[in-house]
Amino acid sequence: DTLEQTEIADPPALSNLSPGSLQLVSKLKNPSGSCSVDVSTMWWETAGCKEPCIITACEDAVSLWKPLDTWQWEKVYTWHFTEIPVLQIISVPDVCSLVCVALGNLEIREIRALLCSTDDESEKQLLLKSGHINAVLGLTQRRLVSSSRTLFDQQIEILTFAEDGGNKEKQFLMPPDETVLAFAEVHGMQEALLGTTLMNNIVLWNLKTGQLLKKMQVDDSYQASICHKAYSEMGLLFVVLSRPCANEREWLGSPVFQLIVVNPKTALSVGMMLYCLPHGQTGRFLEGDVKDNFAAAVLTSGTIATWDLLLGHCTALLPPISEQNWCFVKWSDTDFHLLAGQKDGSVFVYRY
């Protein structure tokens, strides 16, 4: 690969920022014959120096971009995939110089770790897991959780990476009797893990013992919800769910995310907040990301919307640029930026 460098893009027009708190700071162009699928950020170490890097993924390649001066980036490594397409990047907190990716067609068939050999700086791939994988999430303390189907049951597996990204430990959690579709860490309770299931239940595990602590039915109106984040406060669990099946004509507006409160002792829950689009905007949740108290979603309309979960309202709208719909959105793990991507490999970095 030749080195590729990005241009500094022009500042966005004010009209793009309605109601506005996003400022365009950088643009990466990753030309590829295949469809662009994901973006992420991570720390990468070279010669004892850790740098905040951007990872871009298209169906047949994953690239690592290192920062140059003044918001420019250069592509330094690319891992190629010829057999199974890339579906998503799996961000694993506390892991440095190692990228995890999920490969598959409609469902995840493999999870791989991407790294560079210290001897010759060449790109390497390690197969971490294969099978029919329903959900995967990177957890703090260099852990990765996945749920997969076998012929007779479901496996919930935790992989723990060593500090150098090498030698992995394996542990299993007790599976619930229905398919787990998504996981969320519980902020403020490091050993708790939460999941949402196909039949609309919330399940809770103890990560240390592997015990399944509780299965809780939430109200029918949360159907097909996916958990993104959970917070433990005052003996209650506050869970942020996305609502891909929300009715756009609900009297409250178009709910994209929802905050529910669950009492883990009684398994009772109530809806606390709906995060809707501003009046006049339509679209349903396609995909999104939640970090701290901020949520971002790509909508079926091709627009990106962000919410402050504490204030309860939409804070920014990012309509499609150059007549191209947005396809994916991520909050940066290395600073407070929003990364937004289009199918053709364009990734825009916004200061939030």
């Binding site: 050993e191 003996g235 883990p264 002792k265 009684t266 009772l268 829950s269």
Partner: peptide, 23 residues
């Protein structure tokens, strides 16, 4: 909604559920 709708709350719910759940 009110907190009363959720039943009695325990600050030690994680430890309590861990001791009640099957090993």
């Amino acid at each position: 909604c009110s907190k009363a709708d959720l039943g009695p709350v325990s600050l030690n719910w994680f430890e309590e559920l861990t001791s009640e759940a099957p090993p």
